[in-house]
Design a protein around this nucleic acid. Structure first.
Lengths: 145, 145
DNA sequence: GAATAATAGTTGATTTTGTAACTAACAAGA
DNA sequence: TCTTGTTAGTTACAAAATCAACTATTATTC
């Protein structure tokens, strides 16, 4: 140790959070990446449309806390793969209503099932109360509530 | 809702973790990025050397859970800025022992102080017991213990 | 002690992200 | 209506992360 030390990097919250986030993403990533060649941004978009129904890119951005350029590119890819359709909103022709195709819906259902299983598996390491508390703290740290 | 739904993306652990990690990194990033023009990879390397003393790139990689190419580039930058020195290890000439220069140490101390303050600020949102539990859970999720 | 494998670290090519500038459409006020 | 401002989304360029191939050195095995 160079310094007398009560401070350990491995307890530094941003570091720990990043590491935990990375690790926990890794397991699930195998599913959408290896199985469907998708990026994280893409499955998030897919997921939003599957989970909450038709919406615009902007709405997705707000809900998923993603920058609009990420969304724009993810939408382009998903549309290319015929997982979603884009239809100009006639009431505001700047924006488009995005909706999953039947093919997109199939993939969504599959991924969602995987996600639920993965979530359950992660949760098994802790008590139900701990998980609730963890979620609450993460939501606060994420600035969600 | 397209599906009947007990599952909400905003409660999905990998999503929440990523968001919380991003947000919590952002605040601290201002310090090392704006003040010293450093990248996250760079400050992590600097931090390890300041916190745990002289070591090799490989050891940093293991402790910080960072890929060797990231470290290689971070070390190059830090060395360029004269924040650290590299001396070939004569017992194994493949590796180098990395150590902070006095200038590097100054920056480390400054950043470390900022880090502690930032950590304290984050912690204020929760009780001491909650923070302890959160750390424990994150360490587990990160695969650290 | 060659030959082969493994390791520390670097480099280059590719992919992905981030930033800023842009287009097209709408909104509001004079 | 004309100007000015705002918003949805895209695109181009720069920064960064990822992946694979490479050099130099050490370890292993026959």
């Amino acid at each position: 140790m160079t310094e007398k030390d009560d401070f350990d990097l491995r307890n530094f919250m941003p570091f720990l959070l990043n590491l935990a986030a990375e690790q926990s993403s890794l397991g699930f990533q195998r599913t959408y990446k290896n199985r469907y060649g998708m990026l994280r941004t893409e499955w998030r978009v897919l997921f939003h449309l599957g989970n909450y129904g038709e919406m615009t890119a902007k709405e997705i951005g707000e809900r998923a806390v993603m920058h609009k350029t990420k969304i724009s590119r993810a939408v382009a890819k998903l549309s290319q793969r015929r997982y979603l359709t884009r239809t100009r909103d006639e009431r505001d022709r700047r924006s488009e209503r995005l909706a999953l195709t039947p093919a997109g819906l199939v993939v969504y259902r599959e991924l969602r099932q995987e996600a639920e299983a993965y979530e359950a598996q992660l949760g098994k390491q802790f008590t139900a109360g701990e998980v609730v508390l963890l979620r609450m703290m993460l939501r606060r740290l994420a600035g969600l509530d």
